[in-house]
Simulated assay, not measured.
Amino acid sequence: MLPLIFTAGWASGINAYAVVFLLGLFGRIGWAGDVPPGLQRTDVLIAAAALFLIEAVADKIPYLDSFWDAVHTVVRPASGAVVSALIAGQDDSLPTMFAAAVGGTTALLSHIVKAGTRMAINTSPEPVTNIAVSTAEDFTVGGVLTLAVFFPVLAAVIAAVLLAIGLWVVYLCASRISRYRRRRRERRGARTGGTEPVLE
């Protein structure tokens, strides 16, 4: 259970709606036996699919993607924790609170990677890079989550490697991200008719 929980948490930090939809769908068609019945409900699948489509568009538009990420700073870790807890609830061998902590923490870390890399990309606000990165994220989440259903340990290893690489990339791009945030503060100050203090 733990490898699936880790992978679901990592994927939730990138696209929480895709995780809910895919896990629910896999459980519905009988590919995964550990998917909670709550995720397989028709209304949950429809809502997750609709929200995924909205995110698929918003995530490919420069600056809007960063706003979307900011809004989901709470949503993605919370979703990772809830999905992980629900998965753990299917098997008494893993404490629910521990599973929620693992899923929520992993989701938070992968969300930081997603939001950080998107800020770095938006320092050059042309849409091609945003579209390419967002599409790659969607396919990666779908592929790794599907792999987790059949080979959970392998999927967890891949998710861990991608998470480690992502955190390293965000660390390397920290100065670029800092400049991006400073420019945003300056633009907000200009719109309000004043100049906001810039903290270095």
Rank of each mutant, 00 (worst) to 15 (best):
V75Q: 07
A85S: 08
V74K: 09
V133Q: 11
I61V: 12
R28M: 13
D59R: 01
V141C: 11
A136M: 04
S93N: 08
T106F: 15
P37S: 15
A85F: 03
D34Y: 13
A81L: 05
A47I: 03
V82H: 05
D69Q: 06
V144N: 02
L39V: 02
G24K: 01
A155N: 04
A78Q: 06
T105G: 08
F151M: 15
G80P: 00
V157E: 09
A81P: 00
T73D: 11
V113H: 00
T96L: 15
L86Q: 05
E137T: 04
Q40Y: 11
S84H: 01
P127N: 10
G80F: 00
A81H: 02
V82N: 03
E137R: 03
F150H: 11
S93R: 07
A159T: 02
A32F: 03
V149R: 04
Y63L: 15
L108I: 04
S84E: 03
W68V: 07
N122K: 02
P127A: 13
F67C: 14
I46Y: 12
F98R: 10
A155Y: 01
T106E: 13
L108W: 03
A120P: 01
T129C: 12
L64R: 07
A155I: 01
P95I: 08
V83L: 06
F151H: 14
S93C: 07
I121S: 05
T42G: 12
